[in-house]
Write a protein that binds this DNA or RNA. Structure first.
Length: 676
RNA sequence: GGCGAGGUAGCUCAGUUGGUUAGAGCGCAUGAUUCAUAAUCAUGAGGUCGGCAGUUCAACCCUGCCUCUCGCUACCA
């Protein structure tokens, strides 16, 4: 697998510097990468791991504006918080850089310039919203307005958070500048685009044909994107925060954040080592991107296309992307504060980084979305870490001290049981290696625990506490073997639980050892281990777990009122009077073919019989609504939907969860009765 | 609607170029044990491998249809 490569370069998604880090980040990206990198380091392989904060983009500038500070203040703050969290959890980057660095600006600008000079971009002029008072274009989230799809009136220029649709700012109804509050005007602006469609044949060959070994979720997602047809993507924005576009005479334009962020991997490597080119431009380097599934398109399609277009760079050999981690059944969300934040975790579970590392690895969303629950966290700690691993090591140390004053006894003649136990060590080591190299961290961790299980079983079978009186010589052999298992555990556990590994080495009073030493004997006869060892793991009580669950419950309660939409702007009575709402009866209803939500409905409005297209098919079957009386806005401009003219709108009440209910009279009334 | 990923024991997940009794960890039950943080060890119960058809001597694994979950995409009051 790694034979053809002489060195490895690992990158992990750059965290966006507008908030702290939570368990989802850790489980999906940074823990797997950390395990992988630590393993290779322990094997003395040439490996580098680069990462850093992603500090550009519109959301950061908006946050800065809201707080009345410069964007740099925001990114400085979160860069420090994020960096500290990673350090506290033993996430062992070789460098954790940031994209607001000078070196990154130079690198990204240079990259852009090369593509620009080589005519790898197309230039397009388009109309964009412009704030005349502030004299600037309004990129993405600088505009809010009503979503043309769902009618949500706080939709952003790039996306509606209500219905999740990607938008173009121009499509918003009643757009509003989020800087001045003014109504923006359309104005022409020029931007550069990366023509992904041109790279499609290459991408198809490279991924679909040459990388069938990628994880099925990654491979499938790429195939889906390529088959859907790739389109040119803008690489610049009208903004004054970011890497300025390095083209003569261009002002107030920066590189679009998705374009500059992955180049951050390159700049971080440059900052780390003068040999950076060896890691980026040499075919004998293996490039790996650890990411979450939301980043697949960038790392498998867009960034490779950029690298290919540039020409000097190697492409990723693999992109081990994980799925998402949910929390107690709900999606993790920064804005809803539905998360376990790393810095908060350490307040409640001081010095227990490895418990979280263990739980997140054992529960990692490797093949599908997975759920983190506090109950599971407690069970993993109490039933596995305390009962299996901690217990085995404690028994071994206690017995060794009791019988031999902590001196490693020599082995005598071996029984079959002894030989089996010893043979288990290299066998499990091989299993662990096999799984690690295939990015199967969950399984690898299980095999590590199996070594502790093997130790517990060996102890139960040999019963040294009974043998000590009748056959003390054989007990020396048994305890020697148990101590060797313990020392092996310290090595093999290091990539997963570095803090625990260090503690075991300390218990054994030896310096930390590397991977090659594992598999056989480590401790020499007569070596003195620690006399009074502490415990590796503490039991977690129900009260502690309940406290965490309560905290989340409180978050849920806090979130409640926010879900009720704020009142819209006041209108005049005349405005209201303009609406003509009538009660009508549904005569016919049928599903609009090839849609999921649309029903074509014929209504007797009293005035006439007319057709209305309504997006309610997910909640109502056509046959169930025939004969129902509903309220209809009858003087709405007709609109063609899927080729059918919709003449009006059925009024619906919508719950928080999106479920729909008719607004109807509580008794039968005449069709055509007006509603006011 | 299209595309992608997934649906295997109570829970979290393995599995197979298709081949005798489908696996692990946790949980549960029973027994053993006391060196150990009531931890450990053994044994066992528990699955029509999402559903229905088909291909085959033989399917959890292949094919088709359907269904549920997640994501992307289209459409949308």
């Amino acid at each position: 697998m790694d034979n053809q490569f002489k060195r490895t370069l690992v990158t992990t998604a750059l965290p966006y510097a507008n908030g702290p880090i939570h368990i989802g980040h850790l489980a999906g990206v940074y823990i797997p990468a950390d395990i992988y990198v630590r393993y290779f380091r322990s094997k003395k392989k040439d490996i580098l791991w680069v990462c850093g904060s992603d500090e550009h983009g519109v959301p950061i500038t908006l946050k800065a504006r809201k707080e009345g500070v410069e964007p740099q203040v925001i990114v400085d703050r979160y860069h420090e918080i994020i960096k500290k969290s990673f350090a506290e959890f033993g996430v062992s980057f070789d460098i954790y850089s940031r994209t607001s660095n000078k070196i990154h600006h130079e690198t990204a600008a240079g990259f852009f310039k090369k593509l620009h000079d080589d005519n790898q971009f197309i230039e397009k002029t388009s109309e964009q919203l412009y704030d005349e008072q502030e004299k600037q274009f309004l990129a993405d989230r600088y505009v809010t307005g009503t979503c043309p799809h769902c009618g949500y009136d706080k939709a952003y220029g790039d996306q509606c958070e209500k219905c999740g649709t990607s938008l173009s700012a121009k499509d918003l109804i009643n757009p509003q500048s989020s800087i001045s509050g003014n109504k923006p005007v359309l104005k022409e602006t020029k931007h550069w685009y990366l023509p992904l469609d041109k790279h499609e044949p290459f991408l198809r060959q490279w991924i679909i044909e040459e990388h069938k070994e990628w994880k099925s979720n990654v491979y499938g997602q790429c195939k889906s994107w390529i088959d859907l047809g790739l389109q040119a993507r803008a690489v610049s924005r009208d903004l004054n925060w970011g890497v300025p576009v390095p083209v003569e005479g261009v002002d107030k334009k920066v590189l679009y954040v998705w374009f500059d962020a992955p180049i951050g991997y390159i700049s971080a490597t440059k900052e780390l080592t003068p040999d950076w080119e060896l890691y980026w431009k040499n075919k004998e380097t293996r490039l790996l991107h650890f990411i979450g599934k939301d980043n697949i398109v960038f790392h498998c399609i867009i960034f490779p296309a950029m690298l290919k277009a540039h020409g000097d760079y190697i492409l990723p050999d693999n992109v081990p992307a994980n799925e998402f981690l949910n929390l107690e059944g709900d999606k993790i969300s920064t804005s809803r504060n539905w998360a376990v934040w790393l810095h908060e975790y350490l307040e409640d579970f001081k010095d227990q980084q490895d418990v979280l590392r263990y739980t997140l690895t054992a529960n990692a969303p490797e093949t599908s979305d997975n759920d983190f629950t506090w109950k599971n966290f407690q069970a993993r700690n109490n039933n596995e870490l305390v009962a299996v691993l901690g217990n085995f090591i404690n028994r071994t140390l206690v017995l060794s001290n009791k019988y031999y004053g902590g001196k490693v006894p020599a082995r005598g003649e071996l029984t079959e049981q002894d030989k089996d136990a010893l043979a288990g060590i290299p066998a499990l080591k091989a299993e662990i290696e096999k799984n690690l190299e295939q990015f199967r961290f969950r399984e690898a961790l299980k095999q590590v625990m199996n070594l502790a299980r093997l130790g517990n079983k060996y102890l139960a079978e040999t019963e040294p506490w009974k043998l000590f009186k009748e056959n003390p010589a054989s007990v020396e052999t048994i305890m020697n073997i148990n101590l060797q298992i313990t020392a092996n555990l310290a090595i093999l556990i290091e990539p997963f639980m570095p803090f625990t590994s260090a503690k075991i080495f300390d218990f054994l009073q030896i310096d930390a050892l590397t991977w090659e030493k594992a598999g056989g004997d480590i401790l020499v006869d007569g070596h003195q281990i620690i006399k009074k060892a502490g415990l590796l793991f503490a039991k977690i009580e129900d009260e502690q777990i309940q406290a965490q669950v309560d905290k989340l419950e409180q978050t849920k309660i806090d979130n409640q009122p926010k879900n009720v939409k704020p009142m819209k702007d006041a209108i005049s009575f005349d405005d209201f009077q303009k609406m003509d709402i009538r009660v009508g009866t549904i005569l016919e209803a049928q599903k609009v073919p090839k849609t999921k939500k649309l029903l074509q409905i014929k209504i007797d409005t009293g005035i006439d019989q007319r057709t209305v297209v309504s997006g309610i098919a997910e909640y109502f079957k056509p046959e169930d609504i025939i004969g129902k009386q509903v309220s209809v806005l009858v003087n709405l401009d007709p609109r063609k939907i899927k080729g059918i003219e919709s003449q009006g709108m059925i009024l619906m009440a919508e719950n928080e969860d999106g479920s729909l209910y008719f607004i109807q009279p509580n008794d039968k009334v005449e069709n055509g009765s007006s509603v006011s």
